[in-house]
């Protein structure tokens, strides 16, 4: 575990989380949430949890993003907040 690398990754994770909940376009929010999941995955790889990292990359960043894009395409894309 390398401390500066850890801090930079956590900074990116925070930026992605805040952007995903403040942006008004729901499709953009979902794609930013996918980027958040991939940064989480990098964070776990450098914390020596590779099994959790590839499960996160395939299940949460892959299937989760696909499910959310499907739900947004079935409903409205604009959000008021």
């Amino acid at each position: 575990m390398i401390l500066p690398f850890d801090l930079i990754l956590v900074l990116f994770v925070y930026i992605c989380a805040i952007a995903a909940i403040t942006i008004k376009d729901l499709l953009s929010a979902v794609v930013i949430l996918g980027a958040y999941s991939f940064f989480m995955c990098l964070l776990w790889t450098q914390m020596a949890a590779i099994d959790v990292a590839f499960t996160e990359a395939s299940v949460s960043a892959g299937i989760g993003t696909v499910l959310m894009i499907g739900a947004v395409s079935k409903t409205k894309r604009r959000s008021n907040d």
Binding site: A20, I21, A29, V30, L33, G64, M68, N80, D81
Partner: peptide, 21 residues
């Protein structure tokens, strides 16, 4: 951050994103 999105956002998809975080 996730808890704020679940409580304060009115859009339901935004609430689900907060739950994920």
């Amino acid at each position: 951050i996730g808890f704020y999105a679940m409580m304060a956002k009115r859009n339901l998809v935004k609430k689900i994103i907060g739950m994920n975080i």
